[in-house]
Design a binder for these strands. Structure first.
Lengths: 249, 249
DNA sequence: CGCCGTCTTGAAGATTCTCAACACCAGTGG
DNA sequence: CCACTGGTGTTGAGAATCTTCAAGACGGCG
């Protein structure tokens, strides 16, 4: 199945306000499409590709493996997300990317990226905005792991994922398709897979959320939000800054 | 005591390679100096200042308070660090800043910042580099909290702080001055203050590190690095990218 | 002196992990 | 068609880690 950048652009259109020439510049960015199967690595930690990728289809995890073999998943990427934006600036990409499902990514060289930024400063701002949003999510993830109980942490994480997916038109307040295994969830949440299993069971028994058969179903959305102390503010940056007069120019 | 931006620039000179006109542009950024006493807040979460700050003197923590009253410290800032870079793009600064010691900050409006970026693209790259480095530290913090035991986590954190301070000419492999209380450390590490106390005792008893009287002393640096699985790679970006030919131009 | 913030210690309890075992299912090859 | 296999999900039991509650010590400062 061939995915073009069009589908992603159509999604981005909903929450980033660029004009036609700017969309054209974005469309012209990708140099080649890469298709990867489940489990394949996209950028290995320490490699200095100096390239970024736009995820067109499928799910990706960014993670770091510790010397003792355990790993921490930093974030999951869904279609429309950038991969390795940070590594454009820092020579060493500080973590690895792995395809969770079969994925399609569009490769963008740092050279073309910076050229496009020069031609279209608002595109630069848009990409920076995306990078800022990524960082805000990492901060929220940090808070989640640092200060919430396993059950609130899990609930928060699955709510956030749902909110992100709705932005690209996937799922609803009912639930969403989710290809993550309990092991992946565990590595993201800083828990053991066994404990994740128990936590998911508790969420199910308390009739809050059901995660089965590659699908998350919200059984009681409001109570779940309450348990997780979930606030959407940091995701709701539907780019008013993108609508103000351009910076950089 | 009056601190000028000069002292910070002198420190930055060591690891960012800009030319004289670029340093001049950086020097011209601050609009006013602000002095704050211990415990004072710099930007309250949710405020949309659209301004950033350069920390000239003292220590600051950036943190977020959860509805149940607990808080998670995201990072500490030391002289030369930026505060609120992210909030230049995202309207809502997603966390608060508090002065841990008496501090001096230089306020920079987003307008002047973006103007300077236009005049000096390499300055923009330098600031982006700083932002990337901040994010890399947050990622490392996430990994620290998610996957390391309390003792390794504490050791790693104090080692990282030491490495950052050495970059600005404070402390050595012997140790460094550190104004943090055990409560602050606890909120940063996602632990209870009581457990932090026990962990510090263990580090002391195992002759690895002593944290007393506002000072961290490394008793056995090598063993500490081993315990913490400390790798400096993500801090060692002494900006080769800053020495390559300018982007954005 | 008395007070407050910080540090310290003990003991009990909650949370989470590890180890071990088993169920389920899809795919694979005989 | 069936046995085998590997990945994933499930459960129990015991142990380790970390938290909470409670109390006291220490030092700076009004």
């Amino acid at each position: 199945m061939a995915y073009s950048i069009e589908s992603v652009i159509n999604k981005l259109r909903c929450y980033i306000d660029l004009d036609d020439s700017e969309w054209a510049a974005l469309r012209a960015l990708p140099e080649k499409m890469i298709e990867l199967e489940t489990g394949h690595e996209i950028v290995h930690e320490g490699q200095s590709h100096h390239n970024a990728f736009i995820l067109l289809n499928g799910w990706v995890s960014s993670y770091k493996v510790l010397p003792d073999g355990t790993r921490q998943i930093i974030d999951f990427q869904i279609p429309g997300d950038f991969l390795g934006l940070r590594s454009l600036l820092l020579r060493t990409s500080d973590h690895s990317f792995e395809a969770i499902t079969a994925v399609t990514v569009a490769e963008v060289s740092s050279r073309k990226m910076f050229e496009a930024f020069n031609k279209s400063p608002r595109l630069a701002t848009a990409v920076l905005w995306a990078a800022s949003r990524d960082e805000a999510m990492i901060v929220e993830h940090l808070i989640n792991i640092g200060r919430r109980s396993a059950i609130a942490r899990t609930a928060h994480f699955l709510l956030e994922l749902g909110a992100r997916l709705r932005l690209i038109g996937v799922g609803s307040e009912e639930g969403y398709p989710c290809p993550l295994s309990q092991y992946l969830l565990a590595d993201a949440l800083g828990l053991s897979a066994i404990h994740v299993n128990r936590v998911l069971r508790e969420l199910r028994e308390r009739k809050l959320l059901t995660f089965q058969k590659k699908r998350v179903r919200f059984d009681n959305f409001d109570k779940l939000v309450e348990l997780a102390e979930f606030q959407t503010a940091y995701l709701d940056q539907s780019g008013p800054i993108m609508k103000s007069k351009p910076h950089f120019s």
